[in-house]
Design a protein around this nucleic acid. Structure first.
Lengths: 154, 154
DNA sequence: TATTGTTATACTCTATAACTATA
DNA sequence: TATAGTTATAGAGTATAACAATA
């Protein structure tokens, strides 16, 4: 067995080997998401928006009159957890709730002028930040990545 | 303005438009990660392993003698949050803590025979599950996806 | 003086049950 | 009977400060 290093029972680990985990899609997707979200938190703090707030505001921005139910379904948020978010956005004057035209139980969520203005800026910032957070990727690779990710969850 | 539908102020939203969010890498990465993790939770429940437990056990499995500090650094876990995980795995007889060969402050984490056996099976299950959770992707696309994701966080 | 592992603790996120008003 | 919005609450995940033992 010439040339074979015998590892003592309690040898110290010099460099941690994470090669197996790195073969897993879930692991890589989670790490990449957390990496981007970290940059997102920094850059969107000026707007007072965390990722969830941003997602909610973005859907309302592009779908004025959307209901809480629809929001929950499209963003996978549980109804009880949306209540506080909506109340917060409303008290900040970014959205307002109006009676639903056909369903008396529901309320339509509408962005205010202030909300629209904020989101126009926030969405530009978000799109820019994503490029910075994935600066090792070409535009083409970024597009490929988005398409492949959507094949998983859509 | 013939042919132009005027939308009433409070019209109901029929289908929620999430096309803007779908252009964002962070949004897609998070949704895809959560989708895979959902399948992970189901399939690895038989081993009593959640994603974090699995990651920790996998690193210990492939790096016998690794310290808590090294684990925290490689998996982005904060030291106080690792303590409970380690204690749980130890009390289940999956790992054991031995004195570190050179650093008296540290403890080396080692998988037991039971832990090795469990992880050999769990890693096979995890690798299989990932393919099922991304069944719309070819093997080649899956490989591309992993490579692109790693360019973001590594 | 710095680091490892740890405790205590707070904050956030996510999940479940149950209620009301309306469909 | 089912659904929209809500309340209360429990559980899981993540965060900071501070301490004892060792480097």
């Amino acid at each position: 067995m010439v040339g074979v290093k015998k590892t003592p029972p309690s040898a110290a680990v010099e460099q941690v080997d994470t090669r197996y985990l790195q073969t897993l899609l879930g692991y890589n997707a989670r790490r990449a998401a957390l990496s981007i979200i970290g940059v997102f938190l920094e850059r969107l703090a000026v707007y007072g928006l965390k990722p969830v707030d941003f997602s909610v505001m973005s859907v309302i921005h592009h779908n004025p009159g959307v209901t809480s139910r629809q929001l929950c379904a499209s963003l996978s948020i549980l109804p009880p957890n949306l209540v506080g978010l909506i109340q917060s956005l409303e008290s900040r004057g970014l959205i307002e709730r109006k009676p639903h035209p056909t369903d008396g139980r529901a309320l339509g969520l509408h962005p205010t002028a202030k909300g629209v203005s904020l989101m126009q800026q926030a969405e530009v910032t978000a799109s820019e930040l994503e490029i910075d957070a994935s600066s090792k990727l070409t535009a083409s690779q970024r597009q490929t990545l988005v398409q492949l990710l959507q094949k998983i969850y859509l």
